[in-house]
Structure formats: C-alpha cells, structure tokens
Design a binder for these strands. Structure first.
Lengths: 349, 349
DNA sequence: AACACAAATGCACACGTGTGCAACAACACA
DNA sequence: TGTGTTGTTGCACACGTGTGCATTTGTGTT
C-alpha cells in the first residue's frame, strides 16, 4: 500500500495536518516535531500524492511544452534539439514535463487548453506562431502562465502582456546576405516551405537577406524565391534536380533550414556538382548534422541554449511569483544569431 | 472559473453523481438525461479535472517513459527517434506522456518510482538495461504496469512475469559479420563504449558478429575490440587518429552505433583515406543521418517502428485489463533486425 | 494569583470526481 | 390491491492533502 501522511501521523503520534506542516517546513510546528516527522517520513519512503496536492493547491510541478505540429513529422532537427534542452532545464528545476503536439494547429491549441483545464500543468512553454490571442487569453484566465519560445505569433510581438523569447530573424538573414555578398556573390536564390512564405518569421529573414546582399552589391531576383512543400532533407534533395537552371542564373542559395540544405548538397553531389566549388550553399539553424557531412555546412546559428534556458527561467520566475497575474514586469527578449563559417560557401574571384 | 460537474448538475437540474454517470455512459441513467447532460457539458466546455479523477480512481491517462541517461547528453540519435515514435503512438491512444531521465542510472530508478508513487502515471515504458529487479517489483506492487522496450535488463529475460520487446542483437551482429565476410573481408575490428563492453546487449551482438565472420572465413582478433568513452560522433572521429595501425591490420570495422561510425568516416576523410575504397565501415541502428553523408552508411536496421508500436500496444492492452496483475499472459517479443546495404563497405577481390 | 500572550497542535472542511447503497417511481403480475 | 421487479436518481462517503480557525499548553507580566 501507498504511504500517506495519515500513516506517518499515526506512527508519529500527531495529526495529519501537523505532518503536512512539518513536510512544508512551516514555522507553525516546533523544530523538534518537524525533525522527528521528517525522519519518519523518510524512513517510510513517503512520496506525496500529486493528485491530492494538485487538487487542493493547484500545484503539480509539471510543465506543458507545446511544440509545432511539424516536429512530429520529423521535419525539424532543430526543434528536437531545442526540446532536449528545455527538458534538461526543467529537470534542474524539479519539474516534469508533458510534451503536447497534434496533427494540426487547431488541435494544438485545444491540446494546450485541455492540459491546463485538466489541471495537469502549472505552466506552459509554447513554440507556435499560429496560436490565437483568444487561446492565450483563456490560458491566462485560468491563472496558468505561458511563455512563447522560438516561435511567437505576430500579434504577441505588439502585446506587452505576453512573455516571449526568440531570436532576430532579420539579423540572421542579414548575416547570411552580407556574408555571401562579401564573398563576391551577386545573384542568389532562397528556399523556404510554401506555408512559411507569408509568415513573419520568414519574411523578416528574407528582408534581412536581401538588404544584406544589396548593402554589399549582391541581389536576389523575385523569381529565385523557391518554395518546397516541407523543409525536409528529401525536399532539398529533390530540388537539386533543377540545378541546371539554378547554376546558370545564380551562384549560391540560402535555405530556411539546415536539413533541406544538406539534402540539396547531397542531390548536387550525385549529379557531380561540387559544393562549394561549383555552387555555394548556406543554411539556417546550425543543427548537429551540419558538421557531419562533407562539405561541412556554413549556416546561421540560432542561440538555442539561450532561448531554452531563458524560457525555462522566465517560467520558473513567474511560477514563483504566485498566482497574481502580471505582478512582475513582463519579459520579452530578442536574441542575436551568429554566422557559423564552415565549408559550403566559396569566395568568388 | 473552471467548470465542474456540480455546475453542470445545477444547470441540468440533477445531482452531480448523475452527471458523472452520464459522462461515463453508464447504463444506470436514462438515455434522455444522458443526452441532455452531455449536451450541456459540451456547451459549457467542461473538461474533467484530472487530479480529482486520479485521486479517486487512480487513472491519469498519462504514461511515464523512462529513457537511459545517455539520451540526455545527446549521445544517441537512435533513441531520439524511438522516443518520437512512442510519443506518436501514445498520442493516438489519447495518452499524455512524461519523459523521465536523470544524470545516472540510480536516479533514473528513483525517478520512475517517484512518478508512480506520486500518482502521476498509469503505466511505464522503460528503456533501461540497468534497472534492478527490486525496482520493478516495487512498481508492480503499486499496481502500475511496466513494459521494457529496446533495452532490457539481463535478469528480465529469464523472468516470465516481466513484459518486454526488443530486437535480436546476436542476429544483428551476425548479419554484419556475414556481410563483411561475404565481401571478402578477413580481418575486422569492432568498436563500442567501455561501459557497454560487459553488457549482454553488446556481448551478444559481438558473438553474432564473430560467428557470422567465421562462418564465411573471416575473423576478429581480441586486440581489435576497441573501446571509446562514449559512442558519440566526436569519439568516432577521434578514433580515426589511429587509422594507420587499423588499416595495416584490418580491412573493415563494425561500430556499435551509427553516429560513431559517421564520425569515424569523417575523421578518415580528413586524412585523405577514402571509404569504402581504402577501408570498410558498418554501423548499427540505421539513424536518419546515415543516408545524408557521403558515402552513405551501410548499417543494421533496428525495427524501431515495430518496437515502439508494440511496446505502446502492449501497455495499452495491460491498462485495459484492469488492475488484476498478470491476468493476461505475459508478452515477450524479440524482433529481427535487417541489413541495410548502402555505400560504406567494399567488395574485396 | 490572575491575566495576557505566544507557541504548538488538532478539528473540520475544502478541492472535484467516482461509486456503493438506499430510496423512490413505474410497471407487471398474481 | 398487494407484491415483486426493473429502471432511475440522490445521498453519503472516499480518495490524500492543505489551511483557517479554535483549542490547548506553556511562559511571562503585573
């Protein structure tokens, strides 16, 4: 049978409320009984029942992490790494975590709300650029703090009551553009997924890329914005079929995600086209696989350690602050990406 | 405020027990009230409180997944993929999942027990070859079913009361050995991590490899069993420093894990040694990255889809069966690996 | 010695849901 | 009309923990 505080109470000769207070280091009990009760609890291998605790005090020590639905379909290596880090951070704070995802964004929202209304989680870390304002409002009404990380809905950027931490996509794109132009590239292409084409995350990045290019004499024709269905390795490889035309009109290409860039390089190599000798490729995200291939991938590093660390820290802070909404000032952070120069881009003479 | 069954009861003009029965489709209520109550519940966006439900009926609809501690340190790409699949399977069964890990195996055990004693989970999926019999006994005493997947403690293999599903390491090793020998290789090397050297998972695999080799004229000298600290990409790359000696004495090498094999190939390439022209490499696990590199990695495929699918299905089955322990016959499954021929092994004349 | 006050503890209730049991109504049958 | 049966509902309690409030005990003050 499970050990409850009543069992401890009986053995210690006190009432269960007293045991409860001892275990919480309440100043209302004497130091002597506190020590005795704590010793007995340890001896009996007592573990508090989380359901009961959650029921009466709304504390579960569990965090819900909402990931974008594409993560399920194994599209994004980067998101995997981000999630890994968040788990570690939450673990250090003695929190368990429930990862929620769904087949489409609508379900994603309901999944988040369900977790909260079920009372399964104390707080949420959300990576989603499609979550609606209504959903977040509903969450806040339930008294559960939420922090956006990595992906932030456009409306939330202008909303001072919403917490978020992400990185500067414009700057990332600009780094890529300036770098390629500085190497002497003049005509470039760019690849993203069709469903990203209109999203702020991409449009800012693209704008940065174009302005970075033109600041140093390069450019990107509108016709050279290429769209694939999903940013997978396979899609990148398939895109390499159109190499002939691309090589004629451009000397390099900027991918929205590393794994697609890697697939593209692989596809080129199979046709005997060498990177970077014949063509330059730059990725985005800086996933692990980037340095495993030949050539190693030049890319833009997203500060994932800082993003996950900050997001977790922000949430812990809000949870500590009690249930009073918006007591502490809201934190919104935009971090800087960095350029990682490896081997997939070439200096033109 | 949150909607409770009492709110629904008031609005429907019935008592809350009646509401509870309606929501569970109990035959004790009339069809008419059931429909009415269900309609009202839906209108009010009712979501049952999981803490209360867990408290009185010990059902949380949450599964604990215990992963080996090395997964946290990003060592194993394979384990990541396995976890991904399990999450999807559990999602299809409307279960949330809490992933538990810790810095070392001892903590891992206590983490699993803690989750159960806290009442946070209904069942466990465990990937661990070090978990003790005592811990599992303790779990079963709490009435929480546990299924081992992928990694199984040695004692559990002989224990008919323990459920598990894994794959045949001997057979996997044998496939690798027979393949290399059939290509004409005579002297091979093998790499694992020091802490795996004594474990059944590896020793069986090694035995299969050696017997596979010798069945077709190959062999592996004891001196060519190489140990690295961890099976990381970096460790594999570092191992390539010893290439000179290896190439003198052997013509190919068998890695315990793909990512180390990939690092090794990369290390060779940097020294101008070509795979498979100068040396043959075969991996194990069949991770995604295996076909992203050049050459693509020849490897042994673990049936990860089947392992995760079966493990989840077995657990769902046991959960359905009520709390009666061992009512249904125990299932123990050993699945077969397959050889994936790509480009990293060469036919010797 | 009477009183005030602080420290320590127990009582009772609340949190939201599920279930055994009793109560009650409706109906069929003798 | 009385009895038994079936169908439907409500009452009361349980699950394990946390907390406001009353109670008891002990100590110091006047």
């Amino acid at each position: 049978m499970k050990v409850t505080i009543k069992d401890i109470a009986k053995r210690a000769g006190v009432s269960h409320p007293t045991v409860s207070r001892c275990l919480h280091n309440s100043p209302l009990v004497s130091a002597e009984t506190r020590q005795r009760v704590q010793r007995i609890a340890a001896e009996m291998n007592y573990v508090p029942n989380q359901n009961a605790r959650g029921l009466c005090s709304n504390r579960t020590d569990t965090i819900g992490v909402i990931v974008p639905y594409c993560q399920v379909s194994e599209t994004s290596l980067f998101l995997d790494e981000l999630l890994q880090q968040i788990r570690v951070m939450l673990g250090k704070n003695q929190k368990d975590c429930i990862v929620a995802y769904d087949e489409n964004p609508q379900h994603q929202e309901s999944h988040a709300l369900r977790l909260v209304r079920q009372g399964k989680v104390d707080g949420l870390l959300i990576a989603s650029s499609t979550m609606s304002r209504e959903t977040v409002t509903a969450l806040e009404e339930e008294g559960v703090p939420a922090i956006f990380y990595h992906l932030v809905p456009h409306w939330a950027l202008e909303e001072p009551s919403v917490h978020w931490v992400h990185h500067d996509n414009y700057r990332g794109g600009r780094l890529a553009g300036e770098y390629l132009a500085s190497l002497g590239h003049r005509h470039l292409a760019c690849v993203t997924a069709a469903h990203y084409a209109g999203e702020r995350e991409f449009t800012h990045r693209l704008k940065g890329f174009q302005e970075g290019l033109s600041s140093l004499g390069g450019s990107m024709a509108a016709a050279h914005l290429l769209l694939v269905e999903e940013l997978t390795w396979e899609a990148g490889k398939e895109l390499a079929q159109e190499a002939e035309k691309l090589l004629e009109e451009t000397s390099g290409i900027f991918f929205h995600a590393d794994q697609a860039a890697l697939g593209f390089i692989k596809g080129l190599q199979e046709q005997g086209i060498e990177v970077p000798e014949d063509y330059s490729v730059i990725g985005y995200d800086d996933v692990r696989e980037g340095f495993m291939t030949t050539p190693e991938l030049t890319t833009i590093h997203q500060p994932r350690e800082a993003i996950s660390t900050l997001a977790a820290a922000m949430l812990m802070e809000r949870l500590k602050g009690g249930t009073a909404p918006l007591k502490q000032p809201c934190i919104q952070q935009t971090l800087n990406p960095t350029l990682v120069i490896r081997q997939s881009c070439r200096q033109l003479k």
